[in-house]
Nucleic acid binder design. Structure first.
Lengths: 258, 258
DNA sequence: TATTCCGATAGTGAC
DNA sequence: GTCACTATCGGAATGAG
């Protein structure tokens, strides 16, 4: 500091660091990262429609801040599981991995039918299915839903649009597996990390498990600094999140029409 | 990029860089950093009150975005001077340095009287002057302004509140010397660099010239990353500009009362 | 990597 | 370091019964 500019040097810094904050006893210890526990412990108490299904082993919920047209979370209810790190549990517990795979297979059909509901009418490759379904339902005695699939052409492969897996470093404290459509068209995709966390190796997909011990996937390094690349065309948007979003909107329009 | 997520790889990046912008011929080539030239070339045409004084060698203007209660710029009119880098010209041209010092001495009295006009009434150390002046002016035959100084006590040393000098890397292209009060209380102090540029060694004061050849002052390095320290009490605000501003407001209140 | 708010940092374009 | 605008990056606090 320049002596010339110093006339008074009184009591040192007023920058005392954190301002002392009065907290009520109730507030101490609150952690928003524990937010999933209420779904795990008492799914029956959730009445806002966010619980899709549950049994003694798992709860399935809609993500509160969906990053795509459909975005579910699969939550194991056993504390011995949900306190573990996802990558460890899915790489070292074959029974758990097997159970999760079974559930994911089931959830994919659920998500696929939801995608068909949302976008089937405007999808070129789903037209055969849509036409055949319309045909089927206009008969005098339409078959029940369970019998329809066998009677219809496959149409668009909606399951190919779904990704399922876990984040290398989850922010929410309870083990959760993401199941979502890959288009990332959502108002909740608000920044770079939202996108990167689903479309880079930071996302470990279900078919990559079990990871081998010491796999590099456990240590992604400085992933928030990675470039953003369009999941559909591969274009590199570097760190230009707004530009990526505009592009994703365009890709979304094309994607729906496929 | 993950192959799983890539269905289509079409034409590369839509990130085409700069958008082509239509410019009128008149606009092409204008550089806002050349904004001082109009004061230098035609001070007589400036009718907004921003020209304080001028002659054949210099123009004195009020800074358009004053960073303190008073903020003037001294501009040499000779192209052989105003095209030079301030540090070089003031370190290698003794005649110029001498002329500038003379002008600065004069301007300091001007700025000091302006500070007295703004803050004299509330200044403790200026009270003897203010009282004596009131006394003098209430006589039957008050003396003219030119005669008053000799008849009055000195009061506050307002010139000690003034800094004069140049920035190591000026943004405006024409050589200019800053003369301003050091309190930095102004709505135009909007970011870190505004503050640092006047209260670190990035500012070379008039009494530091001539710099010796090869002086480190020519290369301040990464000065925008330097900590901000209160010019008055020395408190270190690191990179907390907003906090510094709040503090400077408090210091300003004390400073006025001195 | 939960969100949200705020603020610091960085790039650009401007006459 | 000219300003002004936008966007990116970075830390801190955080709800609900």
């Amino acid at each position: 500091m320049n002596a010339r500019t110093k006339k008074h040097r009184t009591s040192p810094p007023p920058l005392t660091g954190k301002v002392a904050r009065v907290k009520t006893a109730a507030k101490v210890g609150f952690d928003p990262r524990d937010g999933l526990i209420r779904y795990i412990e008492h799914p029956e108490r959730i009445t806002d429609g966010s619980v899709v299904e549950y049994d003694d082993k798992f709860v399935v919920i809609k993500d509160k801040f969906p990053k795509a047209s459909v975005h579910l979370l699969l939550l194991p209810r056993d504390p011995a599981l949900y306190t573990q790190h996802s990558l460890i549990a899915l790489s070292t517990d074959p029974t758990f991995l097997s159970n999760v795979r079974t559930r994911i297979a089931h959830l994919k059909t659920l998500v696929a039918s939801e995608l068909r509901r949302q976008y089937g009418a405007n999808s070129a490759s789903d037209a055969p299915y849509q036409t055949a379904l319309e045909d089927l339902m206009s008969r005098p005695n339409p078959p029940p839903p369970s019998a329809r699939t066998a009677l219809l052409p496959p149409g668009r492969d909606w399951e190919a649009e779904i990704i399922a897996g876990v984040h290398t470093h989850p922010s929410m404290n309870h083990l959760h597996i993401h199941i979502l459509s890959r288009e990332m068209h959502s108002p909740w995709v608000k920044h770079k990390k939202h996108y990167l966390s689903f479309h880079t190796s930071f996302m470990v997909h279900m078919d990559e498990f079990p990871l081998e011990e010491g796999s590099k996937r456990f240590k992604p390094g400085d992933w928030p600094s990675w470039d953003m690349e369009c999941w559909r065309c591969g274009a590199n948007y570097k760190n230009k999140f707004k530009k990526l979003c505009e592009h994703l909107s365009e890709e979304f329009e094309q994607w729906k029409k496929e």
